[in-house]
């Protein structure tokens, strides 16, 4: 019954066999099969020879400039500490407050020129930025500070232009309005989530 393990199955296990990564029962079956099967023995030899060939590659040295350059990169990204500290602690929250203060106005308004402008902008820009921010938030190593800036910039430019510009809108359908309102809420949630994540 053990010898019934066929060549195809055994061959699929040969790398793990060579690496001693098989469970005991698999190991026994492979060993027994190999005792009687010359073609699988040859298969095993050639795989091991391939593995050995990789051992002929050198072990390169770390370039001398590696750490000096890396430190420079670390410094250059965290250099504007005072500057970014100011931005993160003062300007971003201020912009956030501005955006959040304006947000209910745009959400509450269902008619008028400013609403049309917002919808036109929302249709063109907001979904992309929103999706980008949401997807980036779920990535373990995303840079939330940058996202905060993106979200803030997006919110401020969208909602402040609402107040400043005049626009004669095409009549929006109910479906579009509903979808956009949902979109705004999602953006607001994403935005708040960005803002509450600890900035560096």
């Amino acid at each position: 019954m053990i010898r019934n393990m066929n060549c195809e199955k055994v061959r699929s296990l040969l790398s793990a066999y060579l690496d001693r990564e098989l469970a005991y029962h698999e190991l026994r079956q492979v060993e027994l099969h190999l005792m009687d099967c010359e073609s699988c023995q040859e298969e095993c030899r050639s795989l091991r020879a391939t593995k050995d060939l990789l051992g002929m590659l050198d072990t390169p040295e770390l370039p001398r400039e590696f750490w000096p350059e890396l430190k420079e990169r670390i410094n250059s990204r965290s250099m504007p500490r005072a500057y970014s500290g100011l931005l993160v602690r003062v300007l971003v929250p201020a912009a956030a407050l501005l955006a959040l203060a304006i947000l209910p106005l745009t959400l509450a308004t269902h008619t008028g020129a400013s609403k049309g402008m917002t919808q036109a902008k929302t249709d063109l820009v907001e979904p992309y930025i929103r999706e980008y921010i949401i997807s980036e938030l779920d990535r373990p190593f995303s840079d939330e500070t940058s996202l905060g800036f993106v979200a803030t910039g997006q919110a401020v430019s969208m909602y402040s232009s609402d107040l400043l510009e005049f626009y004669d809108p095409p009549t929006p359908s109910k479906a579009v309005t509903a979808s956009n309102r949902t979109g705004r809420r999602t953006q607001a949630e994403a935005f708040q989530r960005v803002m509450f994540l600890s900035p560096r």
Binding site: S46, L47, T50
Partner: peptide, 22 residues
């Protein structure tokens, strides 16, 4: 990966160490 490497490096495979099975 190893099987593909073996195919691509076929002319050189046995330039490594010759080994016994087992």
């Amino acid at each position: 990966g190893r099987r593909l490497l073996r195919k691509k490096l076929a002319p050189y495979v046995y330039q490594g160490t010759e080994v016994e099975v087992g």
